[in-house]
Computed example of a mutant assay.
Amino acid sequence: MNIGVLGPKGSYSEKAAKQWLAGRNNENDHSLEYFDDIQDVFSSLSSDSVDIGVVPLENSIEGSVGVSLDMLLEKDVAVIGETVVTIEHCLLSRGKKEDIKIILSHPQGLAQCRQFLKEHFEGVELRTTGSTSHAAKLATEFPEMAAIASKEAARMYGLDILIPNVQDRRQNHTRFFVIVPSEKKEHIESIIHANSEEHEYKTSIIVYLDRDRPGALYEILAEFAQKSINLTRIESRPSKEALGDYVFYIDFEGYINDANIKGAIYNIESKVGMLKMLGSYPKFIPGPTSN
């Protein structure tokens, strides 16, 4: 199967895909395809050019990746897995630190290193790129250019690690979703054995209230509380229909076929304008390959 990730080679999305695949019986039956941006990964699923996509969802320093949230709402995809990657940004270049005039990285990469850049490279031009690995590839062109990217990207493109661990917080992690076209979900899960009874599960949904009234969100959250369902994440995102109009992204523990969750979803559907089920998937468990 083909797996679409944000490229080029050496990206954290590539690392996430390999980490998710690690230990699977058919790990070697998959190939990676690299795309210029996150939208292209989603589009590749729609056009059947790839079978699976791996996209960044949220970062422990900078929060959610807005484009991924928007695409999850707009595209007909299902979530079949998650993985969490430890982010270790390095300053990479083929020149010397004192000669750097331009620093490149993905917007999230620059934001996660904001204080470092202010303290050590005040006045240096910052440029955004489609990914951290794209920044590393561009930094090979001139010694006055540097990139904020991974040590894997340094090896991939022959760059020196001028300064390691430049993120503003030592604990820096990004959560990735593994997504597939909705109509192929059961088939792909059967191949990768995603529905093993041995797993603990999480479920993700998107809710649009569709009417502004006192207590509307409370009514939704009460359904989870009354059935002792543990919410692991809730986030609002503009609906893009009107100012102050939002959709809500909700993650919680458990599998969609669990009786208490089925009951909660049934009750919530009658209280909202839209409920999109993204899917139930094995909960990420940290291991040696995630460090």
Score class of each variant (00 low, 15 high):
Ser49Asp: 04
Lys101Thr: 11
Leu92Tyr: 04
Val84Gly: 01
Ile87Asp: 04
Val5Trp: 07
Glu186Phe: 03
Val166Glu: 02
Tyr266Cys: 03
Pro8Gly: 14
Leu278Val: 14
Arg175Ile: 14
Glu58Val: 08
Gln167Ile: 10
Glu144Phe: 13
Leu91Glu: 03
Leu209Val: 07
Gly7His: 10
Gly273Lys: 03
Lys283Pro: 10
Val124Glu: 02
Ile268Thr: 09
Ala135Cys: 12
Pro286Val: 02
Leu138His: 05
Glu119Asn: 07
Lys185Trp: 01
Pro288Phe: 03
Ser49Asn: 11
Gln171Thr: 06
Ala111Pro: 08
Lys276Tyr: 12
Ala16Trp: 04
Ser60Leu: 07
Glu197Arg: 15
Ala194Val: 07
Gly81Thr: 04
Pro8Tyr: 03
Val77Gly: 01
Glu125Pro: 11
Ile261Phe: 05
Ser182Met: 06
Ala264Leu: 04
Ile148Ala: 15
Ser60Cys: 12
Ser60Thr: 11
Tyr34His: 06
Pro286Trp: 06
Ala135Gly: 02
Lys202Cys: 15
Gly4Glu: 08
Lys262Leu: 09
Arg170Lys: 08
Asp245Ala: 01
Arg233Asn: 12
Trp20Ser: 00
Ile206Glu: 00
Ile206Trp: 07
Thr83Ala: 02
Lys227Asp: 01
Pro181Gly: 09
Asp48Trp: 07
Val124His: 02
Thr174Gly: 08
Ser270Gly: 09
Ile38Asp: 09
Ile265Leu: 09
Ser290Cys: 05
Ser93Glu: 04
Met145Leu: 12
Asn165Met: 06
Arg24Lys: 06
Asn291Thr: 10
Gly109Asp: 11
Met71Lys: 13
Leu217Asp: 11
Asn26Val: 03
Asn26Tyr: 04
Glu74Pro: 15
Ser270Val: 10
Asp251Leu: 01
Val178Glu: 01
Ser49Glu: 13
Glu144Tyr: 12
Ser11Phe: 10
Lys202Trp: 13
His187Ile: 15
Ala16Cys: 03
Ala16Ser: 03
Asp168Val: 05
Gly158Ser: 04
Glu269Ala: 09
Lys97Ser: 12
Glu200Asp: 09
Gly130Met: 00
Ser204Ile: 15
Gln226Cys: 14
Phe121His: 11
Glu14Leu: 11
Lys262Thr: 06
Asp168Cys: 13
Ile102Phe: 09
Arg127Lys: 08
Glu74Gly: 05
Pro286Gly: 05
Arg237Tyr: 15
Ile87Val: 08
Pro214Tyr: 09
Ile229Met: 02
Ala78Gln: 02
Lys151Pro: 05
Ile100Asn: 04
Glu189Met: 12
Ile179Arg: 06
Val41Ser: 00
Tyr281Lys: 02
Asp251Arg: 00
Ala149Gly: 15
Gly279Phe: 14
Met1Asp: 01
Ala147Cys: 02
Val79Tyr: 03
Asp51Phe: 11
Ala242Gln: 10
Glu152Trp: 03
Glu88Tyr: 10
Asn165Ile: 06
Ser13Asn: 04
Phe35Gln: 05
Pro143Phe: 00
Glu219Gly: 10
Tyr249His: 10
Ile256Lys: 14
Lys262Asp: 07
Ser31Gly: 05
Val54His: 01
Val65Tyr: 08
Pro238Asp: 11
Gly215Thr: 10
Asp168Arg: 09
Ala146Tyr: 00
Ile206Val: 07
Ser46Met: 07
Arg94Asp: 08
Ser236Ala: 13
Ile103Gly: 05
Leu6His: 10
